[in-house]
Computed example of a mutant assay.
Amino acid sequence: MSVKLGIIGGGVMAEAILSRLLSQNIYAANTVVVSDPLQQRRDYLQKTYGVEVTENNAVVFAANVILLAIKPQVLDRVAADLSGTANSSNLLLSILAGVPLKRLQAAFPACAVIRAMPNTPATVGAGMTAIAPSSQVSPQQIDRAKTIFAAVGEVVEVSESLMDAVTGLSGSGPAYVALLVEALADGGVAAGLPRAIASQLALQTVLGTAKLLQETELHPAQLKDRVTSPGGTTIAGVAALEAGGFRAAAIAAVKAACDRSRELGN
Results as ranks from 00 to 15, higher is better:
Q222L: 14
V156A: 12
A132N: 14
E52Y: 10
I70V: 09
G9P: 00
I197W: 07
A151H: 06
N266L: 15
I197M: 15
P72L: 00
V99Q: 07
A239C: 01
Q214F: 09
V158K: 13
A130P: 08
P194C: 11
A248I: 00
L5Q: 02
G127M: 05
I148E: 01
V155F: 03
S135M: 14
T85K: 15
L213G: 10
G188F: 01
A243W: 05
Q204S: 06
T54G: 10
T228W: 02
Q24G: 08
S134A: 14
A165I: 13
L184T: 03
L67W: 06
L184R: 10
L207F: 13
A202C: 09
G168F: 05
S172M: 07
A185N: 09
A28L: 14
S134K: 07
T167W: 15
P133C: 06
P37V: 04
A107D: 00
S172G: 14
S170N: 10
A69M: 05
N119P: 07
P174Y: 10
K71W: 01
S2C: 04
V34Q: 01
G171S: 13
E215Q: 13
L101S: 09
Q73W: 07
Q40W: 09
V156Y: 04
R20W: 01
L201Q: 12
N64Y: 05
L207S: 07
L223W: 00
T228A: 15
A86V: 03
M1V: 13
E217N: 15
T209D: 04
I148V: 03
T234G: 05
M128P: 03
G153Q: 07
A63S: 10
E160H: 08
K211C: 11
E160V: 07
S23R: 04
V166C: 13
G6C: 06
G265I: 12
D81S: 08
T129L: 01
T205V: 09
A130N: 03
V124G: 04
A191S: 13
P174S: 10
M13Y: 08
E263I: 08
V51M: 02
N119D: 08
L207K: 13
T48E: 11
S134C: 10
I142C: 02
T129F: 06
G84M: 00
S170L: 11
Q39F: 08
S229M: 00
